[in-house]
Every structure is written in structure tokens, then in C-alpha cells.
């Protein structure tokens, strides 16, 4: 079994004052993808910020890659101004900056950038202005930027949001390839199916840790319901209302409901 790249035990994360997320113990091994799942406000972003040293933490064990460039991140591309005058290649080359500091890139750096662009399947668009790419291509370009830093750990924040099927499949394929190369990944997502598709283990949180285990064991309806109490979830076009939400909304009986607003008869358990 490969070495853990991230090892966290009995940790709490916050920004001073009361912790946003507590009781967290998990690890991410090289070549493994871990899904980080929880409702909005559950503390997922705080956990990612904590791993990057941008939020405070208290922990019995706290091991994360510490050298510059060892942690790559994929933000939500909606945070970025599409009018900014840079090409895809220039954006991906930014990924070398943490490792290079003030040095200018050499031939080896340019090769790594080209490989990162190729890894996300955008070689033919390398000279295209970032703002002219589609939403999915921008997301892949930002992933290539993270790859150009040759990270040991990749933190992907809602990477599948707003992607069409083609981009989603391409991203899933890239995640599989990265795992094969030994990169450790921590992926926040609301999409349980995608978590099942590529994530070996899942960390379920809502202010505290609900569960951390193999994805199939964690994503049971009872546990998801415990994490998403009073929330409605979208799973592949179907709306899942948890017991508490359903009772509040309809004043009805306590049973699990799968409201099918897309194709009929599908179940996700």
C-alpha cells in the first residue's frame, strides 16, 4: 500500500473563534482520490484552506506536502475574469511559477507545460485566449495549470460544476490518469455518482466528520441524510429530499423520498 500524502488525525479547522469543522481524521495516499462531500457551509472549503495553510487548524496529526508547488489546486473557473488577456499556454505556464520563483522558465519547464496541456487534451487550443475557451475547456486549462506545478497532492473544488458531458468525461479520464501516475487527489463535489466513479474513499462532513471510508460504504442513504439534513440534493437530474427536509416541506411521514424530476424509476442508493 502506498504512503499517505496527507495524514490528518483529530483535527479542527476554522478562522479563529469556534471551529467551522471538527473531529476530522483522514488520509489520502499517493495514487488515490478521496471525495470530500457535504452540504454548503459544511466546512469543505475551510478544510481545503486549512490544508493550504490559509485557515487555522488544531490537530493531533497534521501531515501535508509542505514544499512550494507540491499542492496543486483547481478553483472554480467562474472566479476568473474571462477578459484577462492571456492565452491558455500562458495560464498553464503560471503553474510553474511557485516552483520557479523569480527565475524565468527554461526548456524543461516549457516541456512540462506542453505535457500538462496535452494531459487535459487541449494542445490544439494552446494559443487560444483563455476567455475564448468554453467553460469546460477553461476548467481543464486550470487543471493543466495545477499539473504544470508537478503536484504530489491536487485539491479540486467542485471540478464538475457546469460541465457538459464531453468535458466531464474528459476530466474524469484525466483524474484516472493522474491517479495512475501516483498523484493524490482530494475532490469536493455534490455529485455522488462522480464520487463513486473515480474516488476510492469518501470523507463526509457537515460541521464535523460524519464518515471516512471506502466510497461505497460511506455513501449510504442514512449517512448522506445525516450530512445533508434539511437539504435537497441533485443526483444526475433527480432531486433527493432527505427525511427531515421532506417532513418540514410536506409535514408528512418519515420515509426516504426520491422525487424524480427527470427520467422515471432511477434510484441511487
Amino acid at each position: 500500500m502506498s504512503e499517505p500524502v496527507v495524514e490528518i488525525a483529530d483535527a479542527s479547522f476554522g478562522y479563529g473563534g469556534a471551529p467551522v469543522l471538527s473531529g476530522v481524521s483522514f488520509e489520502v495516499r499517493a495514487g488515490e482520490a478521496v471525495a470530500l462531500i457535504g452540504p454548503n457551509g459544511a466546512g469543505k472549503s475551510t478544510l481545503l484552506a486549512g490544508l493550504l495553510g490559509l485557515a487555522q487548524h488544531e490537530a493531533r496529526v497534521f501531515r501535508v506536502p509542505a514544499a512550494r508547488g507540491e499542492i496543486g489546486t483547481l478553483p472554480q473557473s467562474s472566479e476568473i475574469d474571462p477578459a484577462f488577456p492571456v492565452t491558455l499556454e500562458q495560464v498553464v505556464a503560471m503553474g510553474r511559477t511557485p516552483r520557479l520563483g523569480l527565475k524565468w522558465p527554461g526548456r524543461a519547464d516549457r516541456r512540462i507545460v506542453a505535457e500538462a496541456i496535452e494531459a487535459v487534451g487541449l494542445t490544439e487550443h494552446r494559443g487560444t485566449r483563455f476567455g475564448d475557451l468554453s467553460g469546460g475547456q477553461r476548467q481543464r486549462a486550470l487543471l493543466a495549470r495545477a499539473l504544470a506545478g508537478e503536484p504530489r497532492l491536487l485539491l479540486l473544488d467542485e471540478p464538475f460544476n457546469g460541465l457538459d458531458h464531453g468535458s466531464r468525461d474528459a476530466l474524469l479520464e484525466t483524474v484516472r490518469r493522474l491517479k495512475a501516475q501516483g498523484v493524490a487527489l482530494l475532490i469536493t463535489t455534490h455529485d455522488l455518482d462522480l464520487a463513486r466513479a473515480v474516488c476510492d474513499r469518501t470523507l463526509l462532513v457537515n460541521g464535523r466528520q460524519i464518515a471516512f471510508d471506502e466510497t461505497g460504504c460511506v455513501l449510504t442513504l442514512e449517512r448522506v441524510e445525516a450530512a445533508f439534513a434539511s437539504h435537497v440534493m441533485e443526483i444526475d437530474g433527480h432531486t433527493l429530499a432527505t427525511t427531515e427536509h421532506h417532513a418540514a416541506a410536506h409535514g408528512a411521514h418519515h420515509h426516504h423520498v426520491l422525487q424524480d424530476d427527470g427520467a422515471a424509476g432511477a434510484e441511487h442508493r
Binding site: 489546486t73 503560471m94 511557485p98 523569480l102 522558465p105
Partner: peptide, 22 residues
């Protein structure tokens, strides 16, 4: 000129630059 590359990163994506440790 000396800080051009990190400046470009920080101008393009300040939050990303902070996360990358710049």
C-alpha cells in the same frame, strides 16, 4: 520586470496565487 511572472499570476487569479503559495 523581475516580478513579472508572479505578478501576472496574482493579477489573473489572486486567490489561486495565494493558494499556490505566492
Amino acid at each position: 520586470v523581475l516580478t513579472a511572472r508572479p505578478q501576472l499570476y496574482a493579477a489573473f487569479d489572486p486567490a489561486g496565487a495565494r493558494r499556490a503559495g505566492l
